[in-house]
Amino acid sequence: MAVSDDENLQLIDKKKVVSSVDGKMSKAGRTTDSGLKNVRALLFLFLWYFFSGCTLFMNKYILSYRDGDATLLGSMQMVLTLVCGYIQMWHPCGMGPKASMSLSSKPAGFAKHMVIIGGMRFTTVLLGLVALNFVAVSFTETVKSSAPAFTVVISRIILGSKTGLYVKLSLIPVMGGLALCSANELSYNLPGFTAALLTNISECCQNVYSKMLLSDETYNYTAAELQFYTSLASLVVTIPTCGLLMDWDKVMATTDSTMFMCLVLNGIFFHYQTISAYVLMDYISPVTHSVANTGKRAFLIWTSVILFGNEVTFLSGLGTIIVIFGVLLYNKALNVDGEKKRALGVKLEVAKV
C-alpha cells in the first residue's frame, strides 16, 4: 500500500520525537534508574556490598573482640578515606577519570559543596556512634529502614525529581522487610531513637546532595575528588571531637601493632565501601541507591548471622524474603513508571510538532 509524502514526513517527525525523548532519558541517565542495566554499575554494586561486609566484620572484631574505642575507629576511617582518596585522584583504578589537583580549575562554590557534604559525613558518623551508645544495632537498622521514603522527599526538594506512584508503593515492602529483619532485641529510648533518626536523615541528604554534584553538567566531579575533599572537610571537625569524646586511657591500653593494623585495614575497607557507593551513585538515582542500601543492610544482617553465629529467627527469614520481593517489585515499578513517562513525553513532543 502506497504511503503519501505527508504521511512519510509525519512518521519521520514521530521517530525524531521518540529519538529526542530517548536522548533526554539517556542524557539524564545519570539521574534515572536505567543505570543498573550497566555492567559497570552492577560491578560497583557488588564491590559496595563486598566492602560493606568487610567493614562490618572489622568493626565487630575491633569493638567486640579487641575492645577498641569507637571514636578512634571512626576517626581512623576518616583519615584513611582522606589518604586513599588523595591517592585515587592520581590513580583512579578504574573508578572514574583522573581528577585535577589545581584548585584554580574548580568551579565556583566548590569549597562550599565539599564542606556541606563533609559536615554531613561527620554528622552521620557521630550520630551513629551516639545511637549505638543508647540502643541496639538492630533498632538503628529498623529506623534506617525508612531511608527510601526520606530519599523520595529529599530528592524532590533538592533535585526536583518526581517519583511515580508504583515506585512509591513498591518501597513499602522494601522498608517493612528490613524492619522485620532487624526487629530482634529492640531497645527504645528517646535519645537513641532521635540520634538514629537524625543519622538516617543526614545520610539521605548526603547521598542526594552528592548525586546532585555528580550529575552536574558544568563540572565533572569524580568519586575520588568527593572522597578526598569531603574527608578533608569532615576531618577538620573530627579532630577536636576526638579530643573530647575519645577514652584516651582505653586507647593507650588497647592499641598495639595488631590493633593499629586492624584500624588501617578497616579504614581501607571503609574507603572502598564509600568510594564504590559514590561511583555507583553516578549510574543510578538517589531512590534506587537508597533501595540498594536497604538490600545491603538485609545482606549485612545475614552476613553477621554467618560470621558471628547470631540467632536466626522466623522474622529475620520472613523479612529477608519480603525485602527481595520488594526489590523485584521496585524494579518492575520503575519499568512501568518509566514507560508512562516516556509515552507522555512522546505525546507532548508530537503535540508540539
Rank of each mutant, 00 (worst) to 15 (best):
Asp6Val: 04
Glu7Phe: 07
Asn8Met: 11
Asn8Trp: 11
Leu9Ala: 13
Gln10Asn: 08
Gln10Leu: 13
Leu11Tyr: 12
Leu11Gln: 13
Ile12Glu: 10
Lys14Trp: 05
Lys15His: 12
Lys16Ile: 09
Val17Pro: 08
Val18His: 01
Ser19Leu: 05
Val21Phe: 00
Asp22His: 14
Ser26His: 06
Lys27Ala: 13
Ala28Trp: 03
Arg30Phe: 11
Thr31Ser: 14
Thr31Met: 15
Thr31Val: 14
Asp33Met: 13
Ser34Ile: 12
Ser34Asp: 10
Ser34Trp: 14
Gly35Glu: 03
Leu36Met: 12
Lys37Trp: 14
Asn38Gln: 08
Val39Ser: 13
Ala41Cys: 05
Ala41Met: 04
Leu43Phe: 15
Phe44Val: 05
Leu45His: 01
Phe46Ser: 13
Leu47Phe: 09
Trp48Thr: 05
Tyr49Ile: 10
Tyr49Cys: 13
Phe50Tyr: 11
Phe51Leu: 00
Ser52Tyr: 08
Ser52Trp: 12
Gly53Val: 08
Cys54Phe: 11
Thr55Ile: 13
Leu56Asn: 03
Leu56Met: 11
Leu56Ser: 00
Lys60Arg: 09
Lys60Gln: 10
Leu63Gln: 00
Tyr65Thr: 09
Tyr65Gly: 07
Arg66Pro: 10
Asp67Ala: 07
Asp67Gly: 06
Gly68Ile: 12
Asp69Ser: 02
Asp69His: 04
Ala70Ser: 07
Thr71Leu: 11
Thr71Ile: 12
Leu72Lys: 00
Leu73Asp: 01
Gly74Glu: 02
Met76Gly: 03
Gln77Pro: 00
Met78Gly: 00
Val79Arg: 03
Val79Met: 06
Leu80Asp: 04
Thr81Cys: 06
Thr81Ile: 07
Leu82Pro: 00
Leu82Ser: 06
Val83Gln: 13
Cys84Met: 14
Gly85Cys: 01
Gly85Tyr: 07
Gly85Asn: 03
Ile87Ser: 07
Gln88Thr: 01
Gln88Cys: 01
Trp90Asn: 15
Cys93Lys: 15
Cys93Ala: 12
Gly94Val: 09
Gly94Thr: 07
Gly94Pro: 09
Gly94Lys: 10
Met95Cys: 05
Met95Phe: 14
Lys98Cys: 04
Lys98Val: 06
Ala99Leu: 08
Met101Leu: 06
Leu103Asp: 12
Leu103Trp: 11
Ser104His: 11
Ser104Arg: 10
Ser105Ile: 10
Ser105Thr: 12
Ser105Met: 14
Pro107Ser: 10
Gly109Val: 00
Phe110Thr: 11
Phe110Leu: 03
Ala111Gly: 09
Ala111Arg: 14
Lys112Gln: 06
Met114Ser: 10
Met114Leu: 02
Met114His: 15
Val115Ser: 10
Ile116His: 08
Ile117Glu: 04
Gly118Asp: 01
Gly118Val: 03
Gly119Ala: 07
Gly119Asp: 02
Met120Asp: 01
Met120Ala: 06
Phe122Leu: 13
Phe122Trp: 14
Phe122Ala: 07
Phe122Lys: 08
Thr124Leu: 02
Thr124Pro: 01
Thr124Ser: 03
